[in-house]
Nucleic acid binder design. Structure first.
Lengths: 92, 92
DNA sequence: CGAATACTTAGAAAACTGGCTAAGTATCTA
DNA sequence: TAGATACTTAGCCAGTTTTCTAAGTATTCG
């Protein structure tokens, strides 16, 4: 789990919006792009950041690339947040 | 609740470390500074970011300034994370 | 094969971040 | 009141991030 990559990915509002758009199911890059004003290239950059954090997974379907939430990282994220506040002996 | 301020504040590893240091109780700016290598001024900047996100509260005690976790925001943060992944009708 | 579609990668500019030093404010103590 | 202590604020600089356009890759279809 790439803690820093995850928090960094979540720091941008557009990327959080992408995650929310994916909550109800996978979407192609193009479908996601419809929700945003900036260029496909900029979107693609955001996808890359989300992928680096393993928050999303991709799958090529013909000429399309389908993005979906990586739910297994969700637990990691929840754990990280808990860890920030939960009282315990310092581990580091 | 300042969503963007919260995610931005959590994006920096030093700031997450500050939060962890505060889990077991309040600390003065000076006590916190002992855990870091950089200048008091830089630390102070990080404190300001955490305060802007309302993740910490401060209280002056004589010449010291005491920092403590603002636990009431903890629920907000958890909620924000849940919201990113939980399936539901898009609200925005 | 060649053109069209769907994305990504590269490279550059503008804005933001995170560090520093120096200077300023608040409080205590002699 | 003067000096020391504990922080914060201001201003600066280097490195990162976010956006764009242009160029490149993968896949489909005629």
């Amino acid at each position: 789990m790439k803690q820093q990559a995850i928090f960094k990915a979540l720091a941008d509002p557009s990327r959080r919006r992408i995650l929310k758009l994916l909550r109800n199911g996978s979407k192609t890059a193009g479908e996601l792009a419809e929700a945003f004003d900036f260029s496909a290239a900029s979107l693609s950059h955001h996808f890359a950041v989300l992928k680096a954090a393993e928050l999303v997974r991709t799958e090529r379907r013909g000429q399309y690339i389908v993005y979906s939430l990586n739910m297994s990282v969700f637990e990691d994220v929840s754990g990280l947040v808990l860890e920030l506040f939960a009282v315990r002996e310092d581990k580091r």
